[in-house]
Design a binder for these strands. Structure first.
Length: 495
RNA sequence: GUCUCCUUCGUCUAGGGGUUAGGACAACGGGUUUUCAUCCCGUCAACACAGGUUCGAUUCCUGUAGGAGAUGCCA
């Protein structure tokens, strides 16, 4: 018999922004499908009408697009087993929930949320096992009629066997066995608003969409037996389960906002490259061998495999992500980087939209200087902003080297001003001996000499190489900036 | 409380009955350099614990501890 085509899905619920955990699951499913010549399906699980938002849905689409992940079947692109949005499939769920009632695998429950709330409180107080007390499991026809007459809208609950075990297997975790009495007692399948719960919709859709493997986070492990019971009740064969290790924060708890940014939108805004995120995220819970850690999306689409998955949860390391980001920024060509940087420069008001020819010229030459100084794309304004705008103020503390005073600094500044033509005309290699000679003559350290110049021209002690920067700035602008500082110092000296 | 899963440097991991337990990030130190950054070199640093099995356990088994997850008309 031929092996059936691999079909996997990412099934997020649009109730919030896409975050690291979700994206990791999406990526692994996508890579697994590609590596096995299978199909990657996107399904929208929008059965929670309270928390649903259009914004979340937009965010989902734009995030996947940004990462370069394309789905073979799903919303927008369609497919043979649609619709791929659960809110458009409610009839199906109702029909199958009813079938379960008819076959004796499920029952109507008329318990109100209030009663359940009370029950939970009581259980907490008495430290008893939590869970539904199966109050409606064996209602007499008269009792049931009474509830109906009272106009209570029922939910449908699954009858979990009272005795015995449910056995199942997870690709990663191996064979497992659970006492039926330990499974959440009679979970709700169909809510009173007529929408299915996750469990029902998920199982039905996976079945009809012919999903072969379920790759999802380990937080779902406890619901495997419940799903297996559902498959049994329907008389269907469950797919292969493979539960991915969870992504944790630095404190070992499930990764969340309090650990820092987790939404892809935030990472994107800060100036992370999709290549870096994709590469790093793929290495949480998965590895290729003992040393390789750079992977493109295309490579992962070939190399990914379940066998190399790790069981233990992994802590999300922002520092390592930053390192990857820097690496990928440096791999960009100057032209690519310029393109990526434009939005940040425009937003900071560093350049006009569109750029003037002068700005474009400066920018072209400035990018190579900036490239190895960027951790995030958003760093760009502070790295090269001085090339476009003169510093607004100076910190005299920074301007005057530790061992020198105002008078001496002023003197040196005048030397700088006199050397401007040489800064512009001589190549960087040619000017260096000239500068050294000058410093010897003046009895000042080259570092100090140039630091004064640096602060005067850029407004800060940290900048790209100062000689190159002056060349970009031009004689006139450099002269202006140095003169301004000279005047400031003069004022202070005469005071 | 109950159930379930997990456990190699601070972090991500490789490995696997006999290894100097390997790599990367971070940290620290050094070098290159006009600052910063980049780059290069180096240092620190781990098999949770206890029993077993074995000639030999970090590796296999059992237990303990610790951590995490689940216990919703959320997914």
């Amino acid at each position: 018999m031929e092996k059936p085509e691999v079909r996997v899905r990412y099934a997020p619920s649009p109730t919030g922004l896409q975050h690291i955990g979700g994206v990791r699951t999406a990526l692994f499913n996508y890579f697994f499908a590609r590596a096995n010549g299978g199909k990657f399906i996107l399904r929208i699980e929008d059965t929670d009408r309270e928390r649903y938002s259009d914004e979340s849905l937009d965010d989902l689409y734009s995030t996947l697009e940004w990462l370069g992940v394309k789905w073979d079947e799903g919303p927008v692109v369609g497919g043979p087993y649609g619709p791929y949005v659960q809110s458009e499939r409610t009839e199906l769920y109702r029909e199958y929930a009813k079938k379960l009632v008819e076959s004796g695998h499920a029952y109507y429950c008329y318990c109100t949320p209030e009663r359940l709330e009370e029950l939970r409180e009581k259980q907490t107080k008495e430290k008893k096992d939590f869970g539904y007390d199966r109050h409606c499991r064996n209602l007499t026809p008269e009792q049931e009629q009474a509830y109906k007459d009272a106009g209570i809208k029922p939910v449908i609950r699954l009858k979990i066997p009272l005795e015995g075990y449910t056995e199942f297997e997870d690709f990663l975790l191996g064979p497992m066995k659970k006492r039926n009495s330990d499974i959440s007692p009679d979970p709700i399948l169909l809510k009173s608003d007529g929408f299915p719960t996750y469990h029902l919709a998920n199982v039905i859709d996976d079945h009809f969409m012919k999903i072969t493997h379920i790759l999802r986070a380990q937080e779902w492990v406890p619901s495997i037996p419940l799903h297996v019971q559902l498959y049994k009740a329907f008389g269907w064969e469950p797919p292969v389960y493979c539960h991915l290790p969870m992504v944790m924060g630095s404190d070992g708890q499930k990764l969340s906002k309090r650990h820092g940014s987790t939404s892809l939108r935030d990472f994107r805004a800060k100036g992370y490259l999709p290549e870096a995120i994709l590469n790093y995220v793929s290495l949480i819970g998965w590895s290729y061998d003992d040393s390789r850690e750079f992977f493109t999306r295309q490579e992962l689409e070939e190399l990914f495999c379940l066998e190399k998955l790790n069981k233990a949860p992994g802590v999300f390391d922002y520092k390592k992500l930053d390192w990857f980001n820097g690496q990928y920024i440096r791999k960009k060509t100057d032209a690519e980087l310029t393109e990526l940087l434009m939005p940040y420069l425009e937003k900071a008001g560093i350049v006009h939209t569109p750029m003037t020819p002068e700005e474009e010229e400066i920018l072209t030459k400035a990018i190579p200087l900036a490239k190895e100084r960027l951790k995030y794309l958003s760093d760009i304004p502070e790295v090269i902003g001085f090339l476009f705008k003169a510093p607004e103020s100076y910190n005299t503390e920074e301007l005057i080297p530790k061992k020198l005073d105002k008078e001496r600094t002023l003197e040196l500044l005048n030397v700088h001003a006199g050397m401007i033509p040489q800064f512009i005309e001589l190549s960087e290699e040619a000017i260096e001996p000239v500068l050294r000679a000058k410093c010897d003559e003046l009895g000042v350290k080259l570092g100090d000499f140039l630091m004064i110049l640096r602060v005067a021209v850029t407004g800060t002690k940290i900048s790209p190489p100062i000689v190159g920067s002056i060349k970009l700035l031009g004689a006139e602008e450099t002269e202006k900036r140095i003169q301004k500082v000279i005047n400031i110092l003069k004022d202070e000296v005469t005071k």
